[in-house]
Design a protein around this nucleic acid. Structure first.
Lengths: 237, 237
DNA sequence: CTGGTCGTATTCATCGGATCAATTGGAGCT
DNA sequence: AGCTCCAATTGATCCGATGAATACGACCAG
C-alpha cells in the first residue's frame, strides 16, 4: 500500500478511534508530516483525499480541522455519483428513491412543523403561478421542486435517511426531468401531485402522504423512461 | 474557489460531459498540469481527491485512468461514513437498511439463480455448524452473515439499490452486533430468521421474503438498541 | 481601562524542480 | 518465434521556496 494510502488510513483510524474528535484541530502540516514520517506534499495529498470525503476541512492561515462528521455532510458526495449516471443508471437511482421517499414522507407527517407546512404551501403557490404564466424558466421550477421535497424530508426524523434521499437524484437528473416536461399537462399533473402530498401532510395523515409520494415518484419515473425513449442520449454536444 | 477545487471540477465536468469516458487514460501529469495551467503538485492533489471518490485510478509507470464509474464502486465510500457513526448514528443507518433490504430481498426472489440459492443453503449450514459447536470466533459468523445478505441483494436487479444497502452497515457496526450477541438464544433466532428468508426465496415467494427480511432487520435493530443500553460507548480504550 | 488598529507570526496554498520506483515496449539474442 | 534485458515513460515521493489568508498580540487613542 502506498505511503499516501497509509496516511489516509492512519488519520481515519485516529478519527474512528476517537483520538481526533469532530471540530478538533489537527497538528500543523509540518509536524503531522514529521510524526507520520512522510513529506509535507504527501501528507497534503492524504488530507486532500479526506477533504473530498468531507472528513477534514482546511482554513488557510488557521489550520486543518475535523468536520462535524454529520451524515448529511459525509453523504453529499453521492450526488456526483448520481450525476455521472444521468444516462442509463438514472432509473436505478430513481427506483431507490421510490422506495425511500414515500417512507420518509410518511415519517414526516407527524413531525413537520406548522411553519414549514405553510412554507410548503407558498412554494406550491409560486410554482402554480409560474406554470400558469407559461414560464419557460425551468431553473426556477427545478429549484422549487427540490425545495418542496427537501423541506418535507428534512422532518423525517432520520438525518441519514434524509441525506440519502437528498442525494439520490442529482441536480443534473432533476433538471433533465423538468426540461423534458414540455407537455403542459404533465407539468399540471406534477403540481397536482405535490398539492396532494401537501394536503395529506396538513391532515397529518401519514398513509395518504406515503401513497401520494409513491405515485408521484412513479410518475417521475415514467417521465424519465419516456425521455429515454424520445432521446437515448441526453447530451447536447 | 481554490485552484485545486477548480481542477477537480474541471475533471469532473470532463467526465460528466463525456470528454473522458470510463476506462480512458488521462494525459500524463506534466501535460495535464500544463493544460490546466497549474503545477504538477496541485494537479496531483486534485487527482488524489478523485481517487478517493473512486472516480480515477492510477498505476505507477503506466498512467491515470477513469474507473468503470459503476455505482457499486462509487458508492462504497459510504461504508466509512457508517463506520464513523458506529456510536449514536448506527440506528439511523439501520433504519434506512430496514426500509431498503426487505424491498431488495423481495426483488431478488424471482431473480436469484438456483446455484446461488444452493450457496445460501451452504452458508446457513456452516453457520449452524459453527453455532452448535459453541464457537467464539465471531469473525467467521460476521463474514457468513455478510455473504448471506450480499448474495441475496446482488440479485435484486438494481445495482444502485444493491450498493446502497451493501454499504449502509459498515464492517465495524456489523461486527459490533455479532460481538454483542452473547446470548446463544439470540444467535439461534438470527439463524432461524436467515433460514426463513432462504425458504421464502426457495419458494420464489417475494412477499414472504420481504416480511422475513423486515422482521430480521427489526431484530437486529433491537439487538443494537439493547447493546447501546448495556454499554453506551463501544470503545475499549 | 476599553476599544480599535496595525503589524507580525503562524499556517495553509501553490509552485518548480529533483529523485525513486514500477511498468511498458522494443532491441537484441537464442 | 519466443525469450531476455534494457531504456524510455510515467506515476510516487520528497525538498525547498514563495504567496496569501488568518490569528493574535502590541500599540495607541479616548
Amino acid at each position: 500500500m502506498g505511503v499516501v494510502e497509509t496516511a489516509i488510513d492512519t488519520i481515519k483510524q485516529m478519527i474512528i478511534g476517537g483520538e481526533l474528535r469532530p471540530g478538533q484541530k489537527l497538528p500543523v502540516e509540518k509536524d503531522l508530516a514529521e510524526q507520520l514520517g512522510i513529506s509535507r506534499n504527501t501528507l497534503r495529498e492524504a488530507v486532500r483525499a479526506l477533504i473530498a470525503m468531507r472528513v477534514l476541512q482546511t482554513r488557510q492561515g488557521d489550520g486543518t480541522y475535523v468536520t462535524s462528521l454529520s451524515p448529511g455532510l459525509l453523504l453529499d458526495g453521492m450526488s456526483f455519483v448520481a450525476d455521472v449516471h444521468q444516462g442509463g443508471g438514472a432509473g436505478e437511482f430513481m427506483h431507490v428513491r421510490r422506495i425511500l421517499e414515500p417512507e420518509g414522507t410518511a415519517l414526516a407527517a407527524p413531525r413537520i412543523t406548522d411553519a414549514d407546512l405553510g412554507r410548503l404551501g407558498d412554494l406550491l403557490d409560486e410554482a402554480e403561478r409560474l406554470a400558469s404564466e407559461g414560464v419557460v424558466d425551468h431553473g426556477k421550477l427545478v429549484a422549487l421542486d427540490q425545495d418542496f421535497h427537501s423541506l418535507i424530508i428534512f422532518h423525517c426524523g432520520n438525518p441519514v435517511l434524509a441525506a440519502v434521499i437528498e442525494n439520490l437524484s442529482g441536480r443534473t437528473v432533476r433538471a433533465r426531468i423538468w426540461r423534458g416536461m414540455t407537455d403542459p399537462q404533465a407539468l399540471r399533473r406534477t403540481l397536482r401531485e405535490h398539492r396532494a402530498i401537501h394536503q395529506a401532510l396538513l391532515a397529518r395523515d401519514a398513509e395518504r402522504a406515503r401513497l401520494h409520494a409513491a405515485t408521484h415518484i412513479l410518475g417521475v419515473e415514467d417521465g424519465l423512461a419516456a425521455l429515454r425513449l424520445a432521446g437515448p442520449e441526453g447530451d447536447i454536444r
